[in-house]
Simulated scan of single mutants.
Amino acid sequence: MYNPTVARLTQRALLGRRRAAILFVLPALLILISVAVRVFDGVDDQIASDVLGGFALATMVPLIGVIAGTGAIGPEIDDGSIVYLLSKPLKRSSIIFTKLIVAIAVTMAFSAVPTFIAGWILNGNGQQIAIAYTVAALVASIAYSALFLLLGTVSRHAVVIGLVYALVWETFFGSLVEGARTLSVQQWSLALAKKIGGDGIIASDVTLPLAVILLVGVTVAATWFAGQKLRTLKLAGEE
């Protein structure tokens, strides 16, 4: 299923100069905010949780997921260069799976790693908060990558739609509107964070069993639909 050549091409596209520069902005901002909070407020578990939950998990992770997930395939479909891959003797499910793995790896690297560093800066992993939010970021990276990869296969406006989803649904509705919380990747991942640490500081409106089911279900379904969509793309001469 995993194709090293497709992986190498996808990685090169995602980590080009312009896209890589964008990917570094949010992690750098998170670290800067964490340093400032630690300097001015000292060690405070609640503040650490607020920063990691409110900025890292609610904003940074989905936005990086948008960049990596849509960027793994969207531009190739938009400019037509995907035909070069589709003309090769490769299973289209293999192309989708490989691009998903690369998107997940990039999203994890640029979201989970800085989340862990920020957690240590904020409170030295007191109450396992740094580890809890890092695990949440890792899990959320998988679901977001699958969702935005699917979005990249079905719409030429994937980035815009993804940004609206990340900034409006996940950041606003997923955090503030009670009824929408059960349909938020952020809340699903918070259920895992709550189980690991926080001791009353980390909250989620979704139970852990339901969160696991939804995370796995959304990831599998999005990947499958992306593969189905790619199969419908026809090359010249195909019947």
Rank of each mutant, 00 (worst) to 15 (best):
S93N: 13
V139N: 10
V160H: 00
Q127V: 08
A109M: 14
S94G: 12
A109C: 10
K99R: 12
V164S: 05
M108L: 11
I129T: 06
L147H: 13
N123I: 00
A118L: 11
A132E: 06
V160A: 00
A143Y: 10
L138G: 12
L151D: 14
Y144T: 11
L90W: 01
G126D: 13
S94T: 08
I117W: 04
G124T: 07
I117D: 00
Y144I: 07
V106I: 12
G152P: 03
L138Y: 04
I101E: 09
P89S: 13
V164N: 02
F148C: 14
V154D: 03
I101M: 12
A112G: 03
S94D: 15
N123S: 12
V106K: 15
S155W: 06
S141D: 11
F116N: 07
T153K: 04
F148Q: 04
T115R: 02
F148T: 10
T153I: 11
F110R: 05
W120F: 15
L100P: 06
A140F: 02
V135C: 15
V139Y: 09
A118Y: 08
Y133Q: 01
G119T: 07
A103P: 06
M108Q: 13
L147Y: 09
F116V: 09
A118R: 07
A158K: 02
G126R: 09
I131R: 14
I121T: 06
L150C: 12
Y133C: 00
R92Y: 14
V159S: 02
Y144G: 10
N123C: 08
I104D: 15
G119H: 08
V159I: 07
